[in-house]
């Protein structure tokens, strides 16, 4: 085996593994143990019930749409913040982190107050026949709100690191502005964009605090999966709750693995074609 030049490999790896075990793995094992603590049939019956299936569609579906919306507008925001200098830029930049810092319940209450049929935004929309709060649209808005910083914050350093000379080179080689964006800037930013969207998605799928206020919680219509976990706990059905948790965890894990596979494929393609 080749001797490593950088010292401390074993020590740091050891720390990492122990730390990950304590922080991530043990809670995960406890969750699994709790789900399998009872009869299989019970857990299976819970996680495959019609009500749960509808809530999976709602939770994962709205989270997906919300993270894609964040992808588009997060990209534009990150672009503006890194590419241009203008008064108030720092203020806007610090505003981005607000959804991180705000307790989710506060976000939920604020959004509900705003979008309720008597709220500032909700009232005019209600006149047009658009119900936002206590509807799926409200859930979407809450998920967009809490996921937004993930996209901006992962894109910013990447866009900032793109130096002008690459764009100048593209221009000198005869690329139009759009071509420069599409073939030079966008591919370089794409991995970070995908990561941002994935993080935003992951956060949105499990979001509870802000959504329960705005969703209305009507069975088969606006019940998100985390709400049903709470409903199970209220019945002291710890196994059922853990079972649903496990399903969400596995689904998220599969989605993350899928996204990582795309990332890997994309990096390879990008590197082999352009270099």
């Amino acid at each position: 085996m080749k001797r490593r030049i950088l010292p401390g490999f074993r020590l740091t790896l050891g720390y990492s593994v122990i730390y990950l075990t304590l922080i991530v793995l043990i809670p995960f094992v406890a969750l699994t143990a709790r789900a399998f603590n009872g009869t299989w049939a019970h857990v299976w019956g819970v996680v495959t019930s019609h009500r749960l299936i509808v809530s999976y569609q709602l939770s994962f579906g709205t989270a997906l749409v919300a993270s894609l919306i964040n992808g588009v507008f997060g990209f534009i925001t990150a672009w503006v913040l890194t590419r241009y200098r203008f008064p108030g830029r720092r203020v806007i930049d610090s505003l981005i982190d607000l959804p991180f810092a705000l307790p989710t319940a506060v976000a939920g209450i604020a959004l509900t107050a705003l979008y309720a049929p008597n709220g500032w935004v909700g009232a005019p929309l209600a006149k047009l026949g658009i119900a936002v709060a206590f509807n799926r649209l409200g859930i979407l808005i809450a998920l967009v709100f809490i996921g937004f910083p993930f996209v901006v914050r992962t894109l910013q350093p990447v866009l900032a690191a793109l130096t002008n000379d690459v764009e100048e080179a593209a221009a000198l080689l005869g690329a139009s502005r759009f071509q420069t964006f599409r073939r030079v800037i966008f591919p370089a930013a794409l991995p970070a964009l995908i990561t941002g969207i994935t993080l935003s998605f992951g956060r949105a799928v499990g979001e509870y605090g802000s959504v329960v206020f705005i969703s209305g919680n009507i069975p088969f219509k606006t019940e998100i999966t985390p709400l049903l976990i709470i409903a199970k706990l209220e019945q002291y059905d710890y196994q059922g709750a853990a079972g649903i948790g496990l399903v969400m965890l596995l689904a998220s894990f599969l989605i993350l693995a899928f996204v990582n596979a795309i990332q890997w494929w994309n990096t390879r393609r990008f590197n082999s074609s352009s270099l």
Partner: peptide, 21 residues
């Protein structure tokens, strides 16, 4: 007839009193 089912009693009071629903 219930347009909203809040997760707790205080939440329902808020919906009725503050949101005007």
């Amino acid at each position: 007839n219930a347009p909203v089912l809040d997760s707790g009693a205080r939440g329902a009071t808020t919906t009725f009193v503050q949101r005007g629903l």
